[in-house]
């Protein structure tokens, strides 16, 4: 697919200019994608608009809230602070890529459901992806380590308590490694 930023999506200086498109090849949730995008297309927009996976949310748009967290080669990153071009040749895992093909939830998703680790749900995809990356680095974290490890993700419902419970429960249940 070819993808340009449309007038109206962008305001301010340089709004009407268009970049020369470039070819990117990204493996998303195990599926190879090859597309032509403008260099300024951010990974989150690539995932949502081009690949069509809208589970990854845009929250603050300033690299703060973590709603757009995905895994790049197995590590959590904020997809609003990465060009699609930087993911060229790499592997991305989004929230849609966690569950098994038969619909069985990833242990982290199951733990979030079991422990009601969400309120409005907007931060949830990013929280889950950040938590998966956290356990990949710290398989048995303390409660304090979970809270610190999720410092890059904000829940504006302030529903942190059950999120932390869910992550600790998932750690107990021995998480399945993802994305490597």
């Amino acid at each position: 697919m070819r993808y340009w930023i449309e007038a109206g999506q962008v305001t301010g200086r340089g709004a009407s200019e268009k970049g020369v498109p470039m070819r990117v090849q990204v493996r998303v949730n195990g599926v190879e994608h090859e597309d032509e995008v403008e260099p300024r297309v951010l990974l989150v927009h690539y995932l949502r608009e081009v690949v069509g996976l809208t589970g990854t949310n845009v929250g603050c748009d300033t690299s703060s809230c973590g709603a757009c967290t995905v895994l790049l080669d197995g590590e959590s990153v904020k997809s609003c602070t990465l060009l699609a071009a930087q993911a060229d040749g790499h592997e991305v895992t989004t929230i849609e890529g966690l569950a098994s093909p038969d619909g069985t939830l990833h242990p982290m998703q199951a733990a979030f459901r079991e422990h009601h680790g969400l309120q409005c749900g907007y931060c949830t995809p990013g929280m889950v992806m950040a938590a998966v990356s956290l356990l990949a680095e710290h398989p048995s974290p303390t409660e304090a380590e979970v809270r610190e490890g999720l410092e890059g993700n904000l829940c504006r419902c302030t529903g942190y308590h059950n999120i932390v419970k869910a992550v600790l429960a998932a750690a107990e249940a021995a998480p399945a490694p993802v994305g490597r």
């Binding site: 200019e17 020369v20 260099p39 300024r40 071009a85």
Partner: peptide, 11 residues
């Protein structure tokens, strides 16, 4: 927010 258009070169 989307950056202004630019040319991308990879070295």
């Amino acid at each position: 927010m989307i950056p202004a258009a630019f040319e991308y070169r990879r070295v």
